[in-house]
């Protein structure tokens, strides 16, 4: 298993655990009326679907898809690392700023969400750029 894949997969497990913790907090919010935990539901969903599932897929695709070439079997390793960094920085910014923006809206949290949105989109773009030419018949 290549090194970027190991990072993708191990980090995805961390996000799975964080998502389930967020789920527990959501349940506690319902039970005890904790209004300070506003804005947590979209974070829970994205920790699960983006941080765990999509990150796991990105790592496995990087590992198992057909080789790009004998010299560069997995395309650009640099792009692979960029995908990893962008995905995790973008998601972490979102996980922090979205609940803050929901409970105490302010320009700093708001613009952090804008930056996070751009970074997460770039994670998808670098993944597709690096994987597209590995998806082929010959």
């Amino acid at each position: 298993m290549p090194t970027p894949t190991r990072w993708f997969i191990k980090t995805s497990f961390v996000y799975l655990a964080l998502a389930l913790i967020a789920g527990l907090l959501l349940a506690a919010r319902s039970l005890f009326g904790l209004t300070a935990l506003g804005g947590l539901f979209p974070v829970y969903i994205h920790l699960l679907v983006f941080g765990w599932l999509t990150q796991l897929v990105f790592g496995v695709v990087y590992w198992m898809f057909p080789k790009y070439s004998a010299e560069k079997p997995r395309g650009s390793e640099t792009l692979g690392w960029w995908t990893y960094a962008l995905l995790n920085v973008g998601l972490a910014l979102r996980a922090i700023a979205e609940p803050v923006q929901s409970v105490h809206p302010n320009p700093f949290a708001g613009w952090t969400l804008v930056v996070s949105a751009a970074i997460q989109f770039c994670a998808g773009l670098t993944f597709v750029l690096n994987s597209w030419n590995r998806v082929r018949e010959k």
């Binding site: 979205e98 708001g110 613009w111 969400l113 804008v114 949105a117 997460q120 989109f121 998808g124 773009l125």
Partner: peptide, 15 residues
Amino acid sequence: GFTLGALMLAQDGIS
């Protein structure tokens, strides 16, 4: 999907 998600997240930030 990422494009639409980014547009919505940015909307959450700066309306």
